[in-house]
């Protein structure tokens, strides 16, 4: 599978969930999708393009909302994909993708520990995954304000 017409294929594959998709440079695409469907998006990508490598999952706090990004590598077409979703800062919740890609487990645990984003379906979320054990349970250090 090559990179030719990848953007078109991507738009067809994710048309129900897509908000925006663009090519940043060769072998790098940035895609924004609906937050509630992120697990379905990853599943659809896996079915269309083959194995997915999750490089990292993390977030940026823009105060009004949290932007969660998934840095993925698609083994089939050999392209990098940044999957972005916007999440409400007051009640941050997302479906977990661990069921589709087991390798995303530590990444989701880390995001929960540092940003307080709850990944529904991930049963291993706990505070003090990477932070010290005596760290306050209601404080998420990488948020811009408490």
């Amino acid at each position: 599978m090559s990179e030719d017409n990848f953007l078109e294929k991507l738009q067809n594959c994710l048309k129900d969930y897509l908000v925006d998709a663009k090519k940043k440079r060769d072998r790098l695409y940035i895609v924004e999708v609906k937050a509630e469907a992120v697990d379905k998006v990853v599943k659809a990508l896996k079915e269309s393009f083959g194995d997915i490598h999750v490089t990292t999952i993390s977030a940026v706090d823009y105060i009004e909302y949290l932007e969660v990004f998934y840095d993925l590598w698609l083994h089939g077409p050999k392209v990098a994909l940044v999957l972005k979703v916007k999440v409400n800062s007051d009640k941050p919740e997302l479906p977990s993708i661990v069921g589709v890609i087991p390798g995303a487990l530590f990444n989701e645990c880390e995001v929960y520990d540092l940003f307080g984003i709850i990944f529904k379906g991930n049963n291993h979320l706990k505070k003090s995954f990477i932070l010290p054990e005596h760290f306050p349970k209601d404080y998420f250090p990488l948020r811009k304000k408490r």
Binding site: W73, A80, I101, G103
Partner: peptide, 22 residues
């Protein structure tokens, strides 16, 4: 599936080296 990288992945015959693929 568990997203191994580098010599750990290549020792398991996974064809993934950033220098070559990206």
């Amino acid at each position: 599936e568990r997203c191994a990288v580098g010599p750990t992945a290549r020792g398991s015959n996974v064809d993934y080296d950033v220098r070559a693929h990206d």
